[in-house]
Amino acid sequence: MKKIIGIILAVVLVMGTIGLGAAEKITVKGSDTMVIMAQKWAEAYMNSNNAVSIQVTGGGSGTGISALINGTTDICDASRAMKSSEIKKLKERFGTMGVEIPCAKDGVTIYMHEDNPVDKLTMEQLKGIYSGKITNWKEVGGNNAKIIMYSRENNSGTYVFFKDMVLKGGDYAASCQNLPGTAAVVNAVSKDKNGIGYGGAGYSKGIKICDVNGYAPTKENVASGKYPLSRYLYMYLRNKPSGQMKKYIDWILGPEGQKIVAQSGYFPVR
């Protein structure tokens, strides 16, 4: 018995040493809303720091959070806060509650075709449209045409945020078309005169932005919270950052990293 316990302890010590040694490569996975910004951060940081290699992939906030829990990513980018059920899984697997780092602010933007005469909606109207109760643009002051809804897939943090904030947890209409990324939503709306979609402010190109409750998703309105779909964008870690990871996080939250936030169409947290 002592021999077996001795073997287990020896393996623990050896593996512990190996585990602590590997820290120069940082993997980032998660939010598609944040993926372009995260790639810009990584490129800019690696240009001035040869000591670290940063690999960025998207997939959606839900995918990133699962990867964080499974130990297959170091940083999870998420456009929504972690759910208590996800924190519970992190506790079970790693014995930690995770570290939440707000790294940018965003206003979830309502995209419309440039020719659509509607330029403002209320939260109630948005709820009516995405729940399937309002089906024609004329019901909200537009043309007599069927509303075509575009949404994200359910592994998207933006999908969850929109569902919580606009639909108050209710279901999306069955006719809502779920697309794999924000770029796909923007592309679909830009080609569809009767289309409506939503996504991060950083993707608002080639489409018209719709005011919500009388406010546009501007820096001032998002910062003040007047824009009703304002939110933080997060980075999640399993543990308190140290070494290269801490330097990278500090850099993102510093002037250079926050400048890239603004260049990406989002709003700095500081």
Partner: peptide
């Protein structure tokens, strides 16, 4: 008592 050792090992 559970202690993680890196992200791949757990005692």
């Amino acid at each position: 008592l559970v202690k993680n050792i890196g992200s791949q090992w757990q005692f």
